[in-house]
Design a protein around this nucleic acid. Sequence first.
DNA 1: CTGAAAGCGCTTACAG
DNA 2: CTGAAAGCGCTTACAG
Lengths: 393, 393
Amino acid sequence: MEPSPPPTRTRLIDVANAAGVTKSVASRALNGDSTLNVRKETRVRIFEAASTLGYEPHAGAKALAGSRTRALALLLPDLTNAVYARIARGAYQQARERGFVVLLAEDTEDSRAQSDYTDLVGAGRVEGLLIASAREGHPLLESGRLDKVPHVFVNRSVAESNRNVSVDLMGASSTAFRYLYELGHRNMGHISGPGDLMPAREREHGFLEEAKSAGVAVPAVARAAYSEAGGYEGAQQLMSENPEITAIYAGTFSQSVGALSALHALGKRIPADVSLLSYDDLPIAAYLEPPLTTMALPLQELGGAAVDALIDQLHGAKPRDVILAGQAAIIERASTGRLHTEQIHQGMGNIGSGTTDQRPDPIHDSRYATEPPSSALARSRPKRTIKKRGSND
Amino acid sequence: MEPSPPPTRTRLIDVANAAGVTKSVASRALNGDSTLNVRKETRVRIFEAASTLGYEPHAGAKALAGSRTRALALLLPDLTNAVYARIARGAYQQARERGFVVLLAEDTEDSRAQSDYTDLVGAGRVEGLLIASAREGHPLLESGRLDKVPHVFVNRSVAESNRNVSVDLMGASSTAFRYLYELGHRNMGHISGPGDLMPAREREHGFLEEAKSAGVAVPAVARAAYSEAGGYEGAQQLMSENPEITAIYAGTFSQSVGALSALHALGKRIPADVSLLSYDDLPIAAYLEPPLTTMALPLQELGGAAVDALIDQLHGAKPRDVILAGQAAIIERASTGRLHTEQIHQGMGNIGSGTTDQRPDPIHDSRYATEPPSSALARSRPKRTIKKRGSND
DNA sequence: CTGAAAGCGCTTACAG
DNA sequence: CTGAAAGCGCTTACAG
C-alpha cells in the first residue's frame, strides 16, 4: 500500500559535497545568483557535480523555500475544440521554452472552476493562470480571487483587465469583410456565436463596422451555437430571412460546416449562389465540398504570446493587453467566388425551389457554376502553406 | 521584480489553534487518519476551522513532508488530434474526481520527452504518468527511467508492460469487418497507419483476422499517414491496385475524410460503388457528403479508465492491462450501403472513367444510387446518440 | 567572498 | 489518547 518514494534522490547537499562547497553556494550558483562571487572554476565544478549526480531539484521544496514553482495553469473551456487545442499547444511549447511546466484545467462547469482554482493556486502549485475559459459572469471573475494571482486572458477580452491576449478579432473580421466585398458581394450574412461569448461579439462587431464604413447594407446576423448544428440553423435562418444574401461569414469552423450543409439542403450552389467564408482554418477544410475558404489565425502563436505576457507579469511587469495584429490570412479555396450579375436578381426566387438546371457532370465539383475551382488544385495548393505536424493516432 | 507571495496564507497551525488542538491532530484529522482517536466533536471543530479560515494545504509542503502530490502527468502525442483530446478530457475529469491535478505534456519530439520527464517526475511534481505518446523505440521506454515511477499506457500496447489501457481495437476492427460483411461486401480494403504505430497495427490485424475466419479475400491494406492527405493517397492506392474493392475501412477520421475525397475524385459513387466506414466518430461526420458511417469509441471513458488504473498502482496494486471491451458501436450514416449485384461486375471498368449516367437531380444527395439515404435523416437521427457538450469558442 | 542557520508548511514516528 | 519534535529539500538573509 505504501508507494515507494524515489529510492534515493540526489539532493542539493550531495552536489555541494561533491563540489566541495556548501549548500548555499551550490544553490546560488545553480540558480544563477548574480550576487554570488565564486571563481569560474568552482562554478563549473558545481554544475558538473549536479550533472553527473543527475541532480533534479525538488519542486516542492523549492516552492516551500520561497522560490518559484515554475508552473502555470491553463484554464480551457473545451479541450476538443480545435481552436483551443492549438492555443494550448502554443502555450505548452512556449512554457517549456521558458522552463515552465503547465497544469491543465478544462473548465467546463462553473463548479469546477472553483475547485480548480483552489487546487492550483490555493495549493501553491502554480504561479499564474492562463485563462481561456472566462465568460461574462464567470465565477473566477466575480469572486475577486484573481486579484491575488498573476493571470492573463487568452482569446478573451475582459474589459479593463489589461490582461487580454488576443488575435485582432475585429481586424480579422474586417479582413473577412473586405475579402468578400472585393469579390463583389454587397449583401452579406454573418453567423455569430451565443451572445454571452466574448470572441463572438468582437468578430461580429468588426464585421458590421466594416460594412458600415463601406456603405453597404448592414449584414444580417444569426447567433447560433458553436457547433455544426448551430451553423446549420444559422445559415437557414439567414437565408430565409434574407434571401438576397450572396455571401456568408461564419464565426467558427464547425458552424461553417453546418452552414455548408444547410446551403446544400436549400439547393444553393456554392459559391455560384452563395459564397461561404469560414473563420479559422483546419486541414479538413480542403476536403469539404466545396473546399472551404477560410481565415487562418495564429492560434499557436497566441498561446505562446499569452505565456510570455504571463511570465512578464511574474517578473513584475505591469499587466497590459497584447493583440497579435495583422496576422489573419485568407486561405482561398472554392467556397467563395466573385459575385455574378445574375445573382443579384436571383433573390427570393431560388429559395426552396431547388435548382433544376441540368449540369454536364453530376459528379463532385460539377456544381460550381462560377469559376469552377479545381478542387484538386485547391487541395494541393492553398494560397498560403500551413505548416503540418505529424499526427499520431 | 519580486512577485509577491500570497500575502498571508492560512496554515495548518492556524486551523489547529482555532480548533484548540495541535498541528499533529489537525493534520491527521484533516487527512482522515484512521488511527487517530478524537471525539467526533473535536474532529468537527477542526474541519469547521479549516473551512472558515479557508485553509488550503500547501502542495509543495505536503509533497516535501512525504505525502502524495496528488498530481498526474499526461503525455500526449498530439493535442490537436481529436482522439487524444477526448482521451485527455476523460483523464482530466476522472483525475479531478479522484482529487488529482493533471500536468500536461505534449510529447511531440523525443528530445522533449526527456526534459518533460525530468521536470515532472524528476522534480517530484507528479506521482504517476499517463502515457499516450509511446511509440516503439520511444526514449522513455528505452531509458528504463519508467521503472521508477507508476505509469500506464493509454491507447497503446507496450508488450509485457502489463500497463496497457486500451479500447479493444481488434474487437472494434472485427465489428467493422462484420458490419461490412453483412452488407454483402466481400472485397474490402483497409487504410492503416504508419507501420510503427501500435494502434494501427492492432486495428489492421483485427480486420484481417476476421476476414480470414470469414473465408473471404484478405483485405488489401494501404499504410498511410494519419491525415487527410494520407487517407487520400491510401484510397487512391487501394482502388488502383484493387479495383474490385467495394468497401473501405479507414483507420482514422482524418484518413476517412481524405478517402472520401479521393473516391469522389476517382468518380466513385459512395456508397453505390464503394462503401466507406470510418474508425472514430466526430460530429462533423454527419455533415460530410455523404454523411460518414463511423465507429464510435469510448475515448473519454478510456482516459478515465487510465486514470483509475494509474491510481490503483499508486495504491500499491500490481499493474495490469485493462481493455475497455465491447463498447465500439457503428453509427450508420450514408457512406455505407448494401452490396449490389452490379457492383460485383463493375470492377476495373469504372476506374478513372468517371460515370456518365444522368441522374435526376444533381444536387447534394443525388449521387446515392443505392438506398438513397436521406442525409437529413442520417444527420438528425444517428443510430446512437452521442452526448453533446457545449462548445465554447 | 563564503558558511552556518533559520525557516518555508507540512507529516509522522515517538514520547508521554 | 495527544503533543513535542524532527525532518522533508530547498533558499536567503545574515554573520563572519
